[in-house]
């Protein structure tokens, strides 16, 4: 089995998730979390996709070039972004009304852990060093589709896809899809189902690197990868 380095892993995950939105012919509202999810924006090619930032913007453009851009125009990760033609600004209540009210078609977020019951843990590691929650709890419960973008294992080689999350939960039974550098899973009929796996790995490799139990889709295929 060939190991995939971190940079390649992140790009692969972002590209694979962006491909999910290629075929939308309708206006599609997408919210992106911090980290790998932000990278998804670089690979979305479909002009029908409108990126929402929960601090109050619909129609987020690419990151501003280094040293350029408007410092008061940021995404939820405090990165300076650009605006697209037709973008709009609004207050935080309308932004979360959009999210809570089911007007956001998908959210992509990172996680510390995700488990067999589609529970997501991504807001805190209880070590006393951080105190913050952000919009994740609203997003996982409000967005129509929740896509978890994570590297398959942590730096010690421990699976992030668990039988049961051990960290505080952000949302229960909310994940719809998991994309890692080695595999794509969906939740179907309350089961975790393997849909795709990377060309570098075998089914047995995926089983051995994944703590959670999963079933293999009869239509399982090799992930299309360009990196």
């Amino acid at each position: 089995m060939i190991q995939i380095n971190e940079e390649t892993a992140k790009e692969r995950i972002a590209r694979r998730i962006a491909a999910e939105f290629d075929s939308s012919e309708n206006r599609f509202v997408l919210n992106l979390g911090v980290g790998i999810p932000t990278m998804v924006a670089d690979y979305v090619k479909n002009p029908n996709v409108y990126i929402q930032a929960e601090n109050g913007m619909l129609g987020v453009g690419p990151l501003a070039a280094e040293g350029q851009g408007d410092w008061q125009l940021i995404n939820a990760g405090r990165q300076i972004v650009t605006q697209t033609q037709g973008c709009s600004f609004f207050d935080s209540s309308m932004s979360f009304g959009m999210i809570r009210g089911g007007h956001v078609d998908a959210t992509v977020l990172g996680a510390f852990e995700v488990d067999e019951q589609a529970n997501i843990a991504n807001w805190i590691i209880p070590n006393g060093k951080q105190l913050g929650v952000g919009g994740a709890m609203d997003l996982v419960s409000g967005a129509n589709r929740v896509i978890v973008a994570i590297q398959h294992q942590d730096r010690k080689g421990v699976s992030k896809i668990k039988h049961t999350c051990s960290l505080p939960i952000t949302g229960f039974h909310e994940a719809d899809m998991i994309v890692t550098e080695y595999a794509v899973f969906c939740y179907e009929n309350e089961q975790l189902v393997l849909k795709e796996y990377a060309p570098e790995v075998s089914l047995d490799d995926v089983r051995s690197m994944t703590e959670a139990n999963f079933v293999v889709s009869p239509l399982v295929k090799v992930m299309e990868v360009s990196v």
Partner: peptide, 13 residues
Amino acid sequence: VDLLPQGTFAEGI
């Protein structure tokens, strides 16, 4: 510290 989800914080206000 009273910590609230962002949307709950906004809607509470």
